[in-house]
Design a protein around this nucleic acid. Structure first.
Lengths: 135, 135
DNA sequence: CTAATTGCAAAAGCTTTGCAGCGCA
DNA sequence: TGCGCTGCAAAGCTTTTGCAATTAG
């Protein structure tokens, strides 16, 4: 039994070809964040006959199950990445489109403090730096 | 000459009724962030006969001119706010939808440092906390 | 066997665009 | 008067949904 199958079962999802393939694609993508359409095209390139609607449905199911995280970096299209254990933020290079992940305890701590100062608790947050190469 | 007219002229835009009205609506909105549709409905309520397409065009022009800022808090719809002088981040209450603005020098500083550690300069950034009332 | 899943096509938002007419400078 | 601006309608994009056929357990 592959690890993909275990992940799907644990999420309460039937082990179907589209789900296994999409999970593999996302795991292979590494730090690259893929849109639903990116995943769809990759499937087509692999010769798999999966509908775009299924890709959307599966990605949403994965998100609900906590397997993947959905981001809205730029308007219009959402991108997905595998949910690794720890939280992290993103730096997106405006020149190359490259995405760098980072985690800063100081920022995390300040966020929590600021929310509490206003009488709130953070449910989640989004920090994205849009950057260009220095010099 | 009203201040709206001056702002528009300075932005190189002709002073037209839709533009003046939309600018007034945004200025009146205060901390409330409005979608294009919110602005459109407000215009209709005021008895103004302005098309939704015009609202979108004008808001985009205002954004280009630096008069307003466009946010994508939740997927789907963009919201707009007047560009006040200083930068600030947002806290969005998941229960009420209320938006609170804040600014934290420590976080700003760390962001800059982190970008530089990776050889980048921040062009802009987006920090949004999604929160719920404490307790 | 039976409920979950899928593909296709159609629908549903939000936003943009083409075009003829209107209006500011 | 001339070019910019507007309204309307249509098109564009991403994402969702209805439905009959298919498939996993």
């Amino acid at each position: 039994m592959t690890s993909e199958n275990q992940e799907l079962k644990k999420a309460g999802l039937k082990v179907t070809l589209p789900r296994v393939k999409i999970l593999q694609i996302l795991e292979t993508a590494g730090d690259r964040h893929m849109s639903a359409d990116d995943v769809y095209r990759t499937l087509l390139n692999q010769g798999e006959d999966v509908g775009l609607a299924t890709v959307y449905r599966v990605l949403t199911q994965f998100e609900t199950a906590g397997l993947v995280i959905r981001h809205h970096f730029e308007a219009g299209t959402a991108v997905f990445e595998m949910a690794k254990g720890e939280h992290h933020d993103h730096m997106v290079c405006l020149d190359t489109g490259k995405v760098i992940e980072f985690y800063d305890p100081i920022i995390e701590q300040r966020q929590k403090e600021i929310a509490e100062e206003h009488g709130f608790v953070i449910e989640e947050h989004n920090l994205t730096l849009y950057v260009r190469p220095k010099g």
